[in-house]
Amino acid sequence: MTARTQATVSAALMCVGALLLTAAAAATISRSSVTYETPDVSLVRADGKRVSLPQELDDGRPVLLNFIFTTCSSICPLASRTLEEFQRKLGRGASKVHLMSISIDPEEDTPARLRAYARKFHAGPEWQYYTGTVAASLAAQRAFDVYRGEKMSHTPVTLLRSAPGKPWLRIEGFVTPDELVDDYQKLLASP
């Protein structure tokens, strides 16, 4: 379940930018290319269906993955708004990329709560939300190196992958919708 980091994240960039609200926005983002081993866990999709995480990730499409919880009032709404804008900016192309948001507070985030949250951010059909047992959520968080001890310690991380078997682009910090579209298009164009 350990992550093999191909290009390590610049720790300095991460800390300087993210520590204070007074820090400049540009300094908060760092990107790295990472390979993760997907844990074989089952999750519950917002439509109530039990699904396999590897199968959801490997449906052939490019994937954008992040971790949220619905009662998070600061970081997550901004991250979710960014994905909403990302879908909007892609227009018709939005159907080609699978957006996945996994809850880090799965006991609270029932499928019904996730559906309401998805509606709030006008999630298109290609943007799906997942919950499940605490153990399954933790396994997913650990596999993608986003587990920070408890839900209030979470940091904004966006993960992008162009196809199954390819490395992930890990974006730490608050990426803007334009930057995210740019990252996505570059990732698709890269060999």
Partner: peptide, 26 residues
């Protein structure tokens, strides 16, 4: 790009107005 109730001060600075800590963000 937050909008509506998501942009309310109370979400981050809390009802007390005394702030909070979210991850690395003070």
């Amino acid at each position: 790009s937050l909008r509506g109730a998501d942009a309310a001060c109370v979400n981050c600075h809390r009802r007390s107005g005394l702030g909070s800590i979210e991850g690395h963000i003070a």
